[in-house]
Design a protein around this nucleic acid. Structure first.
Ligand SMILES: [Mn+2]
Ligand SMILES: [Mn+2]
Ligand SMILES: [Mn+2]
Ligand SMILES: [Mn+2]
Lengths: 219, 219
DNA sequence: AATAAATTTTAGACAAGCCTAAAAAAATAT
DNA sequence: ATATTTTTTTAGGCTTGTCTAAAATTTATT
């Protein structure tokens, strides 16, 4: 049996792994789980005993095949429930992440299967994240962060790397929705903030932090 | 904050209260929570401190207004989710109880409200149980147990007092579905088992235990 | 009314998941 | 190469929810 808490650790280690080649550090996990490093060490030892991660002290952590499988199932459920909440219950995309954080731990293969069917086998969640299929397969999309795009280039917004209500509401306010065409007007050297245009008459000024959390693809 | 576990205790005390006038005993709670009496005593003290139950040692327990309110909210969620699982995802009525036991603890008023709307404000769950409204109001239906019906009487099956898969599958097998017309053909004095007819050519012989868990109303 | 039986509570313990403070190891700077 | 800083682990402790065994209380029986 894998507990609610263990599932959350696995999911977080999975996400960190997607951003890094190397081992994941104890501190990185502690930050995302909102716990202290000492607690993470305890949990890593436990997950290691269960063969869900490979871990040797001071060496960082990595998911095993089995651990990645569990993480992908949780992510699949999270994203399917988000689709349900937005497409069927009429929630806004900025309201669903926290609820999905709870729903993702409901245990029933049959439920996930039927939910997937009910939603018509969606490929992406409301934030543009791909939904792993039954076997944990998920397309590599190769989206880039807006922060890495050069001046004068035009790109299409495909997703967000953060699901907090405040961030998503801010994006809505400046007209940054999935599918928007975004042109980089200007980049400030000193803090990497940028001025962008997303189709409207007026340009917007966004911080590097914001640009990092917007996922785009080239036109 | 009310934990998952506390919610389950409150729900169980609520259900036991519906069947009895008097105080609920520690042992009765222990049986339904599948824990030991000692654990129940601990929890009752805690719930009492939180003003969710009134409890004095050796005197049994009763829900306070506040406790009943919490219990009704959990029951409302349980039943709405069961409707969702059957009506929208196509589950059979005998497959949904365990999943609803998990879903009933998801915390979001907004979610419950929207789910209710999505399901078109259902009044009953798939097992014939009434669904409490937003304010915790629920009709008194006055259904009787089939075990209390006299010989030669015909009644209509309106619900079940137990949601286990095995019980519900057994009912399906003998053609006992909601809405069935049931006539008592014979009652055996010694063990209160009965022979019934539910519309088909052949009669069925059912135990007292089964009859106790079938809810009916007079025609 | 006294005794026996059943129920309930208390006492003490344990696992899960978290914490703080101190020690150990690794990384960085001098 | 040493010293300093940062990261990670260990040690010990806390809370929640559970358990078993023993003690207290209530209920039932003679
Ligand atoms: Mn999300
Ligand atoms: Mn998402
Ligand atoms: Mn149920
Ligand atoms: Mn039900």
């Amino acid at each position: 049996m894998i507990s609610f808490t263990e599932e959350n650790y696995l999911k977080i280690i999975y996400k960190l792994s997607a951003e890094t080649e190397s081992e994941i550090s104890t501190n990185a996990v502690a930050e995302l789980t909102q716990t202290k490093a000492a607690s993470v060490t305890d949990m890593l030892r436990k997950l290691s005993e269960k063969q869900l991660v490979s871990y040797q002290k001071y060496q960082g952590v990595r998911l095993t095949e089995k651990g990645a499988e569990v993480a992908l199932k949780v992510i699949r459920k999270h994203r399917l429930w988000e689709v349900f909440l937005v497409n069927k219950l009429g929630f806004n995309w900025d309201e669903v992440h926290e609820i999905a954080e709870e729903l993702e731990h409901i245990n029933s293969e049959e439920l996930v299967q039927r939910l997937d069917e009910f939603l018509d086998y969606p490929q992406f969640d409301p934030h543009g994240d791909p939904i792993p299929d039954k076997d944990g397969k998920m397309p590599e999309l190769g989206y880039k962060n807006l922060s890495g795009i050069a001046i004068n280039q035009t790109v299409v917004m495909m997703g967000v790397a953060q699901h907090s209500t405040s961030f998503l509401q801010y994006l809505a306010k400046i007209g940054m929705n999935l599918g928007a065409n975004v042109t980089i007007i200007e980049i400030n050297d000193f803090d990497k903030s940028m001025t962008i245009n997303n189709g409207g008459n007026s340009n917007y000024f966004i911080s590097h932090e914001v640009a990092k959390n917007i996922l785009v693809k080239k036109k």
